[in-house]
């Protein structure tokens, strides 16, 4: 027993894909733990407040209503289709940006627990994603109310630009129909991506503390570069524009646009390009591959770095 202590290792090195998968698998299995932690975060945030997490709903409603009214006047767009657009966009964006900004802080903010309790890292990533999902769920109430109010306008063909469906210039949207159900797989893809983003950025940000600052400064810019408060329809012909804007292909390079699209478009009966789905699925695969490599190499280092 004593003789060979130096040359045989009883466990394989901690850097293996098996260990990375084990972490993710056992993390996923402990639903009660991350579910509880995620809920606890929401409850704590609105502790002692009477309205509680419904402040989320109210905030979302006020912002969307205010900006919706303002921008519809600025751009000269019809309120009954533009307001649902902006509300839905805000909810989806809120989830995306929340998962990015809080996801990269996942391990840093759980430092105490990581150093105190042995648990898979995935627990903390799921805690973050689950919290964001719950927040999005509260915001969905605003969506339901707005869409109920404007349903007549949304349930038939419409263009966000007035004449899109009659002249053939610009985007003509089919209106809400059964394709609304595809928002569910759309959100599932989004959540899957939130998973890898949280794990990967979380690990990297724990090591390099400049990364969160960098991303924070970029996220605001990304918000304006993604069609959320402005409709992408504006870049197509129509409303006095001769042809398609040179900016359109650039905006379509923004992957966040496609992620917003796969959830938002079906929810408000808008036209969606198959390209958006392809981009989203492609990024899911590439992203998880990268995240697995990061998890394989640096999973065991996180508790040293926090």
């Amino acid at each position: 027993m004593n003789a060979d202590t130096t040359d045989t290792a009883p466990v394989p090195g901690s850097r293996s894909f098996k260990r990375a998968f084990d972490d993710i698998r056992s993390g996923l299995r402990q639903t009660e733990l991350w579910g509880h932690l995620g809920w606890q975060d929401i409850k704590q945030r609105y502790r002692r407040s009477v309205i509680g997490p419904f402040w989320l709903t109210i905030t979302q409603g006020v912002i969307a209503l205010g900006l919706g009214l303002l921008y519809s006047q600025l751009f000269g767009l019809p309120i009954e289709t533009f307001l649902p657009y902006i509300v839905t966009g805000f909810i989806v964006w809120g989830f995306i940006s929340g998962c990015i900004t809080e996801g990269m802080q996942t391990f840093i903010s759980n430092e105490g627990l990581i150093k105190q309790m042995p648990a898979p890292l995935t627990i903390y990533a799921l805690r973050t994603v689950w919290r964001q999902t719950l927040m999005a769920a509260h915001n969905v109430i605003v969506y339901v109310i707005i869409v109920a109010i404007f349903f007549p306008a949304l349930s038939q063909q419409y263009g966000i630009q007035d004449d899109a469906c009659t002249t053939g210039n610009g985007l003509c949207h089919p209106g809400i129909d059964w394709s609304i159900l595809s928002a569910a797989p759309g959100f599932a893809i989004l959540a899957l991506n939130a998973g890898w983003v949280t794990l990967m950025l979380g690990v990297i940000s724990t090591r390099y503390r400049d990364i969160p600052q960098l991303i924070n400064s970029l996220i605001q810019l990304l918000f304006y570069l993604t069609p959320i408060v402005w409709p992408i329809d504006q870049l197509y012909a129509g409303n006095g524009r001769d042809g398609v804007s040179w900016a359109l292909p650039i905006i379509e390079l923004n992957p966040l646009y496609h992620f917003v699209q796969i959830v938002r478009a079906p929810l408000i009966g808008q036209h969606i390009d198959g390209k958006s789905w392809l981009v989203a699925i492609g990024i899911t695969i590439v992203g998880w591959a990268l995240a697995l490599v990061v998890m394989r190499n640096y999973r065991a280092r996180v508790s040293y770095w926090v």
Partner: peptide, 8 residues
């Protein structure tokens, strides 16, 4: 909580 940097 910590995995050894070297050894097992």
């Amino acid at each position: 909580i910590y995995e050894p940097t070297r050894g097992s």
